[in-house]
């Protein structure tokens, strides 16, 4: 059985959970087994995980799971995995997923691989799977040498598809340990898709000349439904908030589309973005190193090109609807 920890936020299933469950169901199909989703704490819409391939949805609803504590969550996931004899435990490669993967692996004495970006294969009874390393500058084929495996799934690995129907949520009784950490406050920007989960990202750098010019970047992002990001110098000079900084020391992202505006493409910036599926570079300098990593390039004045691109997308969207 494949057990998927389906991450929630504010009592609702996260988008990354749909992806984890869909991945788990595809994996289960190749193995002739079933995929079960596990949700922790209060969840309003757990049943929809059935549509994405979960045969069953299990819930442990205990007041001690109201906020995230890595040890408590890992203990509950491990207990359920052990009781129900899960062969593979799937986690998201999110902040919380990264907190959990090492802990769950140790508790289950299972081999673990993080940031997995393909479906695994079995050869001679052993699980082989690929993951990215060196910030996407290399890939490795990896092998699990234990009977059960813990895998954390990089975002945008598979596009989740609703293929089945909703399933009822089954309550599980599990002894939940007391958390030894206490969440005092959560400060999260609402209404935008966080960068690590974004399918499209519009990012801008020093070529913007001044923070007051960011309107054209935001307009382009809005028409695409993309999340905005920035380069390190822009964040360091306070033009944009630090949580928008993508790159080696910022956030590593892997969207389907990355549009870089007025960013030269230093190697440290590329390290955070070169796992993007398609990269568009808009720059006035035809020698910008970023073009070597790009799929599409536009050389021109970004203050003219970006609004023109926004208009072209608007036209495309209104024509296709």
């Amino acid at each position: 059985m494949i057990l998927v920890y389906a991450e929630t936020q504010d009592g609702k299933i996260k988008r990354s959970a749909l992806e984890s469950v869909y991945y788990g169901s595809r994996l289960a199909a190749t193995q002739g087994t079933t995929c079960v989703a596990l949700v922790l704490g209060q969840v309003a819409d757990g049943g929809k995980l059935g549509s994405y391939g979960a045969k069953e949805v299990w819930q442990v609803n205990d007041a001690k799971l109201a906020s995230f504590d890595s040890q408590t969550y890992a203990e509950v996931i491990s207990k359920v995995a052990a009781d129900k004899q899960a062969n593979v435990i799937i986690l998201p490669d999110s902040s919380n997923g990264k907190s959990l993967s090492g802990l769950v692996a140790v508790k289950l004495k299972a081999g673990v691989l993080s940031g997995v970006n393909k479906l695994p294969e079995w050869k001679e009874g052993k699980l082989y799977v690929e993951r990215a390393l060196f910030s996407g500058k290399a890939f490795a084929s990896c092998r699990i040498d234990s009977t059960n495996a813990v895998l954390s799934i990089a975002s945008n690995t598979l596009k989740p598809v609703a293929e089945g129907s909703e399933v009822p949520v089954t309550s599980l009784m599990v002894d939940v340990p007391e958390a030894r950490t206490k969440v005092l406050s959560v400060n999260r920007s609402v209404g935008i898709v966080p960068l690590p989960e974004a399918e499209m990202v519009v990012s801008a750098g020093r070529g913007m000349k001044d923070p007051s010019n960011w309107g054209i970047v935001e307009d382009l992002a809005a028409v695409l439904g993309a999340t905005t990001a920035c380069s390190r110098p822009v964040a360091d000079s306070g033009w944009r908030p630090h949580h928008e900084h993508v790159g080696q020391t910022g956030i590593a992202i892997r969207p389907n589309l990355y549009i870089a505006i007025g960013i030269s493409g230093a190697i440290q910036h590329l390290a955070g973005v070169n796992s993007s599926k398609v990269i568009v570079v808009i720059n006035k300098d035809p020698e910008a190193p970023f073009y070597k990593a790009a799929d599409y390039g536009v050389v021109g004045d970004l203050f003219e090109v970006v609004p023109r691109l926004t208009e072209a997308i608007k036209k495309f969207k209104s024509a296709s609807h």
Binding site: V112, A138, F139, D295, G297, R308, L309, A312, K315
Partner: peptide, 25 residues
């Protein structure tokens, strides 16, 4: 319990396709 068996670098990016800045369509 988990091993990296074989490494490889991604295939070289195909050359960037340049688009006329006047033609965003």
């Amino acid at each position: 319990l988990a091993k990296h068996i074989e490494f490889r670098v991604p295939p070289a990016k195909t050359a960037v396709k340049m688009v006329d800045p006047a033609n965003m369509d």
